[in-house]
């Protein structure tokens, strides 16, 4: 299937800071990709470049085969954009804003239907500045949808939204995906990515750390919970497989589940008077994310140690 979004060796610099560092990605037509990464990883810079709001410092991006800046006028009718925040006249009501945006497009959706679908009918006459954060986000999504886009860019669509609002937004995203709309969304919500995306890309410090389908990222391995700070080197030796502590109190074993592995693990913990909890095969997306980002952080720390000749955190430890 043809790619609707193509990112080739993209570099985005903000002055001295390199926000995106030789990133390459593709999103197939009709695909839903979640772009994950810590704050400052380069997610928003990447999306803004695709939207034509920012010029690449190097590399190339294409959306529906078009350059977002030089061919902006041909592209904008086919994309829907949800900025991370703002983007609406504060004095406008949802009804006014949707009707205004609808006038920009040749064949828009019915604003009244969109207000109803996104649960905004009751606040249709309330100025944007008086809407709750969740209502503002839902209006922003409605504005992105009103032109019947073929490609949707959603920058943290559920940030600051309550549980009910999140469910509505996820349903609407799923509906768009089922209608063949290509979607690229950034999020910090792993559950959201798991719920709506078929592919995930994790970026870290502007570089692609890993990308793949949800199955590829979450299959394999064994996860378990135990008190924080286990001697993972000793446990790895005992199990004959690498064990890492992904976050304090959560561990991943790089091996398939087997009776002997579970028995060895339980025995190792029991011999130290420790309890085992939350044992499961496979990984959640959050586990996978933490493992990837954690490994990268460790690798960076190793490089720092190599460069400085001492542990990167030694100074901090001494201060304590």
């Amino acid at each position: 299937m043809a790619a609707s979004i193509v990112i080739e060796d993209l570099v985005v610099r903000h002055g001295e800071l390199t926000a995106v560092d030789h990133l390459s990605l593709e999103v197939a037509e009709g695909g839903v990709m979640a772009l994950l990464g810590p704050n400052g990883a380069g997610k928003t810079s990447t999306v803004e470049t695709l939207e034509g709001l920012r010029a690449p410092s190097a590399g190339r991006v294409r959306v529906l085969g078009l350059d977002p800046i030089s061919e902006r006028s041909r592209l904008v009718a086919d994309i829907g954009v949800m900025l991370q925040q703002g983007g609406v006249y504060p004095v406008m009501t949802p009804d006014q804003a949707l009707r205004l945006f609808a006038a920009y497009y040749a064949d828009p959706l019915d604003p009244a239907d969109l207000l109803e679908r996104l649960g905004l009918a009751e606040v249709a006459a309330t100025p944007w500045r008086r809407l709750s954060g969740g209502e503002q986000q839902r209006l922003s999504l409605a504005l992105a949808l009103v032109g019947r886009p073929r490609v949707l860019f959603l920058d943290e669509p559920t940030a600051g939204v309550d549980v009910h609002g999140r469910a509505t937004i996820r349903e609407v995203i799923a509906e768009q995906a089922s209608q063949g709309v290509t979607i690229l969304l950034t999020t910090h919500e792993m559950a959201e990515a798991e719920a709506v995306a078929d592919r995930v890309a994790i970026i870290h410090r502007g570089r692609l750390a890993v990308s793949g389908t949800m199955d590829e990222l979450t299959s394999g391995g064994v996860r378990f919970g135990a008190p924080a700070g286990l001697d993972v080197a000793d446990l790895s030796a005992a199990l004959g497989a690498t064990v890492i502590e992904t976050v304090p109190g959560s561990y991943a074993i790089d091996a398939d589940t087997s009776g002997s592995l579970v028995g060895d693990l339980a025995g190792w913990l029991a011999s130290r008077g420790l309890s085992l909890s939350d044992l499961r095969s496979g990984a959640s997306l959050e586990d996978a994310y933490r493992a990837v980002v954690g490994e990268l952080a460790l690798a960076e720390a190793s490089v720092d140690r190599g460069l400085s000749g001492r542990p990167a955190t030694s100074g901090r430890r001494r201060r304590r």
Binding site: G52, L53, V76, G86, Y104
Partner: peptide, 17 residues
Amino acid sequence: FERGYGVLERLGVTPLG
């Protein structure tokens, strides 16, 4: 204020231009 609220930026990526 429209620039500060991101309105100009948002309208720049609609067919209004």
